[in-house]
């Protein structure tokens, strides 16, 4: 599996560290209460198909990258720098 890093181009997946779903971007506000944080920390949509993952390009540019991927086929649909995605979300 090769992952197109927005900075470095197509790279071997071994250069990346996987963190999990990009749902992790949506951290609740500090006063959101315990149930919201339990959902945030532990519960996942876990879809078969289109999924947005967080990968760290650990042995490359060390950027966090949002990878849109099909979990049923391993096809990579798009990638973007997590920093850009986070800025866009604000």
């Amino acid at each position: 599996m090769r992952i197109p890093c927005p900075n470095c181009g197509d790279r071997d997946s071994r250069e990346f560290h996987y963190r999990g779903s990009a749902e992790l971007f949506h951290r609740p506000a500090g006063d959101a209460g315990q149930p919201a944080f339990v959902e945030y920390v532990y519960f996942r949509d876990n879809p078969a198909g289109r999924h947005r993952d967080l990968w760290l390009h650990e042995t490359g540019c060390r950027s966090w990258i949002v990878v849109e991927r099909d979990t049923a086929t391993h096809e990579i649909l798009s990638t973007a720098l997590a920093a850009d995605v986070a800025r866009g979300a604000q």
């Binding site: 876990n46 078969a48 979990t71």
Partner: peptide
């Protein structure tokens, strides 16, 4: 491995990644 999808049909999520 399909637990998340079956649970989704029943309207809830699980603390699981496949």
């Amino acid at each position: 491995g399909r637990s998340g999808q079956v649970a989704a049909m029943a309207g809830f999520r699980l603390p699981i990644e496949s």
